[in-house]
Every structure is written in structure tokens, then in C-alpha cells.
């Protein structure tokens, strides 16, 4: 969707040298195999897993740091779910090393399970049990004494706003309510690391805001969050770091830099659309970089500096701008840049 990058058509001649990339990504130019296995959070090094002839995960190396929300992004079949299953101590890797909160899920899965809360994409619930029974049982299975498990269940039911349904069989819950119960289940034992697979699927807008706040608070308190999602704008809001995976591999530094350099569309709206298009032409923005959709102009720009420069010029020319913002977020832009690179 990004416009072809015609190199000789910058919107602003003499733009300053590009600043370091915005802090959205794990340092993209760091060599992919340099991670410290003794670090806290989630550390993955040279991970590989195949099912018969299918290489679900070929070579994954990354570090999701404590205190941050890390997005896990990639197309279907990129190996995200397989990776999460290995992190959740359910699947053994063929090769490579994993540390979750310092513990190795292959050698000491119980230590990983103490520290890790996991919310799978397809949530299995005991359909005849009530949310309260489920949370108490899971707490007991995590080794909490009966009384503490009950207290914790009540706490989480209030947090997930499931009070009215707390004693009904969980099969009556809607998809969004199931998701909230699933998140509560992942939090029962006060984990330090959260693994979330599409946690926002089926959530209403209020619940999405709450989820976002919860994850931010969780990270702010020193927790590590790895969140896999296809909702890229949602991830843009919530994630400070991102790990891009494609065909079983973490997308390495160079490809990421290239993808991020792909032109990005900015959405511009003015009170006077005609003045806007006139000034865009007179400023010298190449016509193949401008796309008009009704009152809105979508302009492909290579750098943020170019955007700042363009805005300044438009305002100086007296165009009554009311909206000037990237049409897509950072993560989405990179993702689409990567997808474009594959084609």
C-alpha cells in the first residue's frame, strides 16, 4: 500500500539527517544472536521446532524485557503460537534455549509456571463450572491454600467485572466475557511474565481500554508482557517493543530497517480541500505521492522530518489544517513494509 519510493522526490529538500528511530523497536540493528540468557524477562536464543516436515519455528532469538510490553507480530503461520507454546512450557524445542523469568521451561517447567501467566488464543474453559469455581480451582492448582484461592478469585472476578455471572456455568459467557475470564485465570498466581495470544479478540471498547491499562500497569510494576496480536493499531497503543516474526524466524535488523524506511502515509485534512491540494502541488510534493479521498489527502512521506517540514510549509502557506497524522501506526507500517518486501 505504500507508494513506490521514488528516491529523488523528497517533500522537503535539505531535510536534516535522520534521527535515531523512534523507540518502538528492540534495537533493530543489534545482531540477532546476541542475547543474554541470564537476563530477566523472556529470553529466547536460536529456538527451533518442527512438526514432522513442517518447520514451525526455524530460528528465533529475542529478548522481551521486564517493565515493557512487547508485541509479537507476524502473518498467520509465522510460528507465533508454536513459540508461545514453548514459552508456556507446554512444548519442548528441538534446539535453542529459553528463559522465562530466569527459568528454563525444559529443565524446570514448574519454576516457569510459577512465574508465568498464559492466555491462549482459543481459550478452553470447563463449561459446566462457574467462573468462581474455575478461578478457585486454578488457584488451588497453582498451590494456593483454599482460603487464599477464594480471596484471589473474588478479587479477580471484581476486576474482570464478572460478579453477576460468577456462579453461572461458564458456558453462558459471551466471547468477550470468556476472554476476560481467561485473563483473570492467567493472573491468578500473581505472575511476573504474561504471555497473551490475541487477548483483545471479542472485547468491547471499554474492556479494551481496561486491558490496555492493566497491561501498562503490569509492565510498570516490573512485569514482562509478550502479546501476540493481529490488531496492529491496538499494539501500537500498547507495546513499547515489538518482535516481528515471519516464516519461523525473527525478522532481523536490516530487513526491519528497510521496512521501516518504506514510505508511510500521512492523513491530512483541511477546512479548504482545494487550498490544500493547490498548496501541496506548489510546495512540490510529487503527484504520485498524494492520494485524495474526499476531503482527506493521504500523502506518502519517507521520514517524520519530512512530515514536520510539510506541515510547517502548509501552515505557513495559510492552509487551514485540522488534521495531520500518520494514517497507520509504527507497528502497522513496519508490518506492511515487511509484507511488501515479501511480495
Amino acid at each position: 500500500m505504500s507508494a513506490p519510493a521514488s528516491p529523488g522526490a523528497p517533500a522537503s529538500p535539505g531535510a536534516p539527517e535522520p534521527l535515531p528511530a523512534s523507540p518502538v523497536f528492540v534495537d533493530p540493528v543489534r545482531p540477532a544472536d546476541a542475547v543474554d540468557l541470564s537476563a530477566d524477562g523472556i529470553v529466547v536464543e536460536g529456538l527451533r521446532r518442527s512438526f514432522g516436515g513442517v518447520h514451525a519455528v526455524r530460528a528465533m532469538t529475542f529478548h522481551a524485557k521486564p517493565g515493557r510490553v512487547t508485541g509479537l507480530i507476524g502473518p498467520n503461520g509465522a510460528g507465533k503460537t508454536t513459540l508461545l507454546l514453548m514459552l508456556a512450557s507446554l512444548l519442548a524445542p528441538d534446539a535453542g534455549a529459553i528463559r522465562v523469568a530466569g527459568a528454563d521451561p525444559v529443565r524446570d517447567p514448574r519454576a516457569v509456571r510459577r512465574a508465568m501467566g498464559w492466555m491462549p488464543d482459543v481459550l478452553g474453559t470447563w463449561r459446566t463450572l462457574s467462573p468462581r469455581q474455575i478461578l478457585v480451582t486454578v488457584g488451588r492448582l497453582h498451590g494456593l491454600p483454599e482460603r487464599r484461592a477464594r480471596e484471589r478469585a473474588d478479587e479477580l472476578i471484581a476486576q474482570a467485572r464478572l460478579e453477576e455471572l460468577a456462579t453461572r456455568p461458564s458456558r453462558v459467557l459471551s466471547r468477550g466475557q470468556q476472554q476476560r475470564l481467561g485473563l483473570a485465570r492467567a493472573l491468578v498466581h500473581h505472575p511476573r511474565v504474561l504471555l497473551l495470544d490475541e487477548p483483545a479478540a471479542g472485547l468491547d471498547p471499554t474492556s479494551r481500554v481496561e486491558l490496555r491499562e492493566l497491561l501498562r500497569g503490569f509492565a510498570a510494576a516490573g512485569g514482562t508482557v509478550l502479546i501476540s496480536s493481529h490488531d496492529l493499531s491496538e499494539l501500537d497503543e500498547i507495546a513499547q517493543d515489538a518482535v516481528f516474526v515471519d516464516r519461523g524466524e525473527v525478522v532481523g535488523g536490516e530487513r526491519l530497517v528497510l521496512a521501516r524506511q518504506a514510505a508511510r502515509e500521512w492523513r491530512v485534512r483541511a477546512l479548504d480541500p482545494r487550498a490544500l491540494s493547490y498548496q501541496l502541488a506548489s510546495i512540490g510534493v510529487a503527484f504520485d505521492r498524494v492520494r485524495l479521498e474526499g476531503d482527506v489527502a493521504l500523502i506518502a512521506l519517507d521520514r517524520e522530518e519530512h512530515a514536520a517540514d510539510l506541515l510547517q510549509r502548509l501552515v505557513a502557506a495559510g492552509v487551514p489544517i485540522v488534521h495531520f497524522a500518520p494514517a497507520v501506526g509504527d507497528i502497522e507500517r513496519t508490518y506492511l513494509g515487511l509484507a511488501g518486501g515479501r511480495r
Partner: peptide
């Protein structure tokens, strides 16, 4: 999907 939910506990 409930087996995995118990497998990730203690």
C-alpha cells in the same frame, strides 16, 4: 483446551 490450562499450573 482445558488440559493445557491445568498443565501450566503446579
Amino acid at each position: 483446551g482445558t488440559l493445557a490450562a491445568t498443565q501450566v499450573t503446579q
